[in-house]
Design a protein around this nucleic acid. Structure first.
Lengths: 349, 349
DNA sequence: CATGGGGTGGAGAGCGCTCTCCGATTTCGC
DNA sequence: GCGAAATCGGAGAGCGCTCTCCACCCCATG
């Protein structure tokens, strides 16, 4: 075998490998894709030829016929024209939340040789870009993380019949799979803990009201406190950023100086709240107990933060799993997975 | 015109559009790609046909003939078998550093309709995967961020003749374009500021010695201090994580209780150092002045951190720009861009 | 000894697009 | 008014791969 000339020019193709191995293109394709039986000695010869030529299959050509690309879009969708001066991409990636989701997705996809393509959708134009991207066959499906509940992208995807999985339940029900946390249960965990440790005057700093998760954490907390006999819980709205937690805490303490416990809707704001309490000379947890939400490893607090743990990496991996299922089987049942949070007790409460 | 049948089945193809518009495939291709002159009324007809059919060009087919994909790999390369228990993807994405780089890259690429594909290379296997990915024609080039100076990936890329641009100068010189910061100059800025504000006993917490940038910041700082008449600067090594900054600060203060100024090699560690100083009852900046490095917006400190600003987003955008240049012109000159840092004076020094 | 069937490899038809010729039509120069 | 140049659309050859036939060989069976 291996009679003749190495690849003519440019990258070696299947044809080249076939020639070197002394077999046909089809046979080489068979051994590469492991379909049907090929005599062992021929397989051997083909493998040698592949090694000899340094052959790598061309993705575009394969993709053209299989109608699969081996990549999925990882899209962060939100409003670009927000108040802040920073461009959307800067805000998105600065958020540890995104990092954890990306990490979870990559952790699941990587062993399966699927690659995520990063996309941002913050305007009608860019949302259409995402849809086009998928319709072009540039990716097999989309993993969508929306920063706001009213995001129109999920519906566009559903209408176009494209495989997609969402992070979190959409504001209005549409037939699409998603993975979400039991936010109310998490908030209740915090309420129970605060009450159990003896807090009598409890308040909360919530996330933006237009984010369903924030609403759920707020109302879940209020309901749980009501069950404990505290029908009124002072609440201020934050934006999930540290500065808003700080400002919110100041406002709360000014209006209700006797507060002895606070549930903050995420760790970033809790960090800000801690700073505010320190400035006000309140000890944590002796004077005021603080519970955060998320359990972000990146957020270092003083004292270490008691928080409701959201297993983001696992949830992200679950999204990826669902998406691959939808891609593999177009009739795969629309599914929603709700993950249960746990309370991580450290020192702040 | 528009005589007949809409697209046969499945997604409409060029052929379908051509039929509806009453022209040939080639003509439709021409108007889509804007090559050569096509009579205005025909262009008009083609556009109507495209709208009517809902045509979207197939990426794979186009890519097969143009040998371009319109995407680039964004690879984070480092050692997977590090001490820590966390998987590589978790550590990478938790780091605000990565987020800023990704933001800068996306900000530049997005308006140009190029999409970044996220890849992690933390073992020989995964490094080969990156090379294969590019050789397959799955991406037109690579943007590589290495967490360690001795990363073998850049050389693999160069040897394979693949377009690539690095974040930071490689440990040993290889012919590849990169974007880096003038670390020594940045460290000198910190030294000058510390001396100018009257610090007499200055120390530093450096990054890991196997990261060239950390070395440069350390030696740059030491040299600048020497110029100011302080030949000896106590130094401890950290790992760029907050906990190591905290531990390092404790060690420094124990061994040299009279320290009145510290230069910390990144903001995350500076945050830890600030915590340690507070625990030790030292006021910042009155007792000890602290200067960080990076100017990470995500790192909220008390007091606000004086730091050496590294314009990561701009640097990342520059990487992307260089990469596109290399892709467009294979003979594009290997280039290194060195960006000058600035000192951002806030309250900690 | 003829017939049938399972296992194996080859031939060849596309997948949807780009792009190079080429031919047809119009316009211009002398 | 005629040939040449300029303009513009079509035909068709691939790009590199997968996959469906189909031909073939070998062995078991009646």
């Amino acid at each position: 075998m291996s009679t003749d000339l190495p690849p003519a020019s440019g990258a070696p193709t299947l044809e080249d490998v076939a020639r070197v191995a002394g077999v046909s293109r089809a046979t080489v394709s068979r051994v590469i894709n492991g379909i049907r039986n090929v005599a062992p000695e021929i397989q051997e010869a083909v493998h040698r030829a592949i090694a000899a030529t340094g052959y790598v299959p061309n993705r575009a050509a394969r993709s053209l016929v299989t109608r699969r690309t081996g990549s999925v879009a990882l899209v962060v969708s939100g409003a670009g024209d927000a108040k802040g001066g920073e461009p959307f991409e800067t805000r998105v990636f600065a958020d540890p939340f995104f990092g954890r989701v990306a990490g979870g997705v990559v952790g699941y996809l990587r062993p399966r040789s699927i690659h995520p393509v990063l996309m941002l959708a913050d305007s009608a134009q860019t949302r259409d870009d995402v849809v086009s991207f998928l319709r072009q066959g540039s990716a097999d499906g989309a993993l969508v993380v929306s920063t706001h509940g009213e995001d129109p992208l999920p519906k566009l995807l559903v209408d176009a019949g494209l495989p997609a999985v969402l992070w979190a339940r959409p504001a209005r029900p549409i037939p699409i799979s998603y993975v979400d946390l039991a936010h109310r249960a998490g908030a209740a965990l915090a309420a129970d803990h605060l009450v159990a440790r003896g807090c009598r005057r409890v308040a909360t700093i919530s996330g933006p009201f237009d984010v369903p998760a924030a609403q759920d954490r707020l109302s879940g907390f209020q309901e749980a406190m009501a069950r404990h006999g505290h029908p009124y819980v002072p609440a201020v709205e934050g934006d999930f950023m540290p500065a808003s937690g700080e400002a919110g805490m100041h406002r709360l303490m000014k209006e209700h100086p006797d507060i002895d416990g606070v549930f903050v809707a995420n760790d970033l704001m809790a960090q800000g709240a801690l700073l505010a309490l320190r400035d006000l000379g309140r000890r944590v947890p002796e004077d005021v107990a603080v519970i955060g939400f998320d359990d972000s490893p990146a957020v270092a607090c003083r004292p270490p933060l008691t928080t409701v743990r959201q297993p983001m990496e696992d949830m992200a991996a679950e999204m990826a799993r669902l998406l691959l299922a939808h891609i593999a089987d177009p009739n795969f049942q629309v599914t929603s997975v709700i993950v249960q949070p746990t309370l991580v007790v450290r020192e702040s409460a």
